[in-house]
Write a protein that binds this DNA or RNA. Structure first.
Lengths: 140, 140
DNA sequence: TTAAATGCAAATTTTTTGCGTGATG
DNA sequence: CATCACGCAAAAAATTTGCATTTAA
């Protein structure tokens, strides 16, 4: 991710570096505000605008997948090494990676078939996780 | 869709009926505001809140797929008879159905594998459509 | 040094909510 | 006639933007 950013001519500031770390290490698919909180623990004067700024950069560099959430903050997946579907619990808003499922087929067929220049994809399953089914979870 | 709504004990008012018509007949995957405009042509005093209201009902009844859009209004797909991926142009924000692709496999395997009760799914491809590639389209 | 990055605060936009009135079954 | 639906307007929440200041390269 660092090299991807540098390749685009952007600077690698301490805030950005910490933010990359948060994105890569987090299993939670954090929202902008959660990323902000984490980065703030090390750089307390970081503003939310900077987070959104860097999110935009990373999206443009193809390093970050934005998972839009209706009625709530978007969530982010920085683990782009290989494509994987998501399993999203509509009750507790947890997002799990489905690494087991191979979702990484090449897109050449679809590109030539449709004429689109395809740059990304997304596959999500929605439902209720086991914890929420058994009433173990409180709604956030 | 009508029966699905009635089954949930909601009333079938003229506004709602027209809205179903708009959703089913539109090929454009309209936003709430576009749905509003269409419905208004027949019921000019319709408010946007009513549109959002009905969207919520239809989503709950599993009759409407919400396609979240980052930084823009969500879009809606009322053609739920069979699941299909979407081809989304990030430049002109057009959304096309990929009816050719079979995306309708049963979810039993995934359900038992993960313990999730899966109620929906979504598969999207992002890119640039032929028109936008050739510079024929103006950005909206 | 110099363009890029940042913080702050205000603006923008979409969606939701509360409430009084009106329509439906 | 008892709910449910509706319009209206205000509220809420997420994201974006403008601008003065700081900082990385």
């Amino acid at each position: 991710m660092r090299t991807a950013l540098k390749r685009r001519g952007t600077r690698l500031t301490p805030r950005r570096d910490k933010m990359l770390e948060v994105l890569v290490s987090s299993k939670r698919h954090p929202s902008a505000s959660e990323i902000h909180e984490e980065v703030r623990r090390f750089h307390p004067r970081t503003s939310l605008a900077t987070i959104y700024n860097t999110i935009e950069l990373l999206k443009e560099a193809g390093q970050l997948l934005e998972i839009e959430f209706s009625g709530a903050a978007n969530r982010y997946d920085g683990r782009r090494s290989h494509h994987h579907p998501h399993l999203i619990c509509l009750h507790c808003e947890k997002i799990e990676d489905l690494d087991s499922v191979d979702h990484d087929e090449p897109l050449d067929d679809l590109s030539s078939e449709t004429g689109y220049e395809i740059t990304g994809r997304r596959m999500d399953y929605y439902g209720m996780c086991p914890d929420c089914q058994s009433g173990r979870t409180v709604q956030p």
